[in-house]
Nucleic acid binder design. Structure first.
Lengths: 174, 174
DNA sequence: TATGAAATCAGGGGGCT
DNA sequence: AGCCCCCTGATTTCATA
């Protein structure tokens, strides 16, 4: 089932990462691989599901999502519990990442929000999920490294994002 | 300084997220906003730094990076420490995200690796960074939700990724 | 599968509203 | 700012090895 990428595939993927663009032309220029071959390989990578979608990277501070919350969640144990709870966590507005872990916590989630009120709301939301026992949250003072693409927008409603814009307009960040 | 996105900008961004493509044409079709206006708005979003780069989303399991490690790191306190340590953490091979937090830990990092050996190596690496006191790591059994783009490749060497491919070839995943 | 050449189509710019 | 229209050039297809 493994796609088994060879050196050429990896070269192409790195070229995309380095030049920050998936353009056939750019890949061709930096790797020397003929344009149509690049095209051919890219097609295979997409078919194999290695590359999924082509989306822009997004600056979430600029979107007004300036607060990063990292929460550890402990949940009741039972048949199919993780799956259901994990799924529900993923649906909570603002949650960008959900990891199911082993050890003393069951889930670790990372959320991006625009206000203190949102944080309270977030915690309220996941504590109200059936099976969630308790949670412990931390703020990230700063995000030193993280890549996120536009698809994360689907974690929010348009309304929230518009509110977030208004908020950052009036808070002197102008 | 805030870019102040209006409803139209948000609509365009959501269109990209929903259709999983940043194509001017696709955005035009789904929003009804004229092509050249879409073009104009996209340009502004790029100029403002809201949209950074256009990169593919990547399936890291398929790349052979099947292990997710989440580590909490405690570091010595001092002038400019976080900045330096955070930067060094970001440079460790395999680390995809670095958050600087408040509370009982100083950094939370998330790494993607391909083998047990890599995990040991990873922990060795960040514990050897000057100023790092101790760390506690968890494995994610599964990643329920997460978006990542090709730029994450820069967290690895080509060699590692090729090795990862070999490993998944011979482990019966074929 | 890989490639060169040819055809197609989307992206980007000029200028008017 | 918004938008129509045209042109350029990148993407994709096709035929061949």
């Amino acid at each position: 089932m493994s796609p088994t990428l060879d050196k050429r595939d990896i070269d192409i993927l790195f070229a995309i990462a380095e030049q920050q663009t998936p353009s056939t032309e750019a890949i061709h220029q930096s790797t020397g691989i003929p344009k149509s071959t690049v095209h051919y390989r890219l097609q295979s990578l997409k078919d194999d599901g290695v590359l999924t979608n082509d989306l822009y990277e997004l600056d979430r501070e600029k979107l007004g999502l300036e607060i990063t919350v990292i929460s550890e969640i402990r949940a009741e144990y039972g048949e199919g519990y993780h799956e259901r709870i994990g799924k529900q966590l993923g649906e909570v507005e603002g949650i960008n990442q959900v990891y199911f872990t082993m050890g003393d916590t069951d889930f670790i989630i990372i959320a991006r929000l625009s206000s203190r009120d949102d944080v309270e709301e977030l915690i309220g939301k996941f504590e109200s999920i059936d099976g969630v026992e308790r949670s412990s949250s931390k703020f990230a003072i700063s995000t030193i490294k993280e890549n996120v693409s536009v698809s994360n927008l689907q974690d929010y409603t348009k309304e929230k994002l518009l509110d977030a814009q208004d908020a950052s307009d009036s808070d002197g960040t102008e």
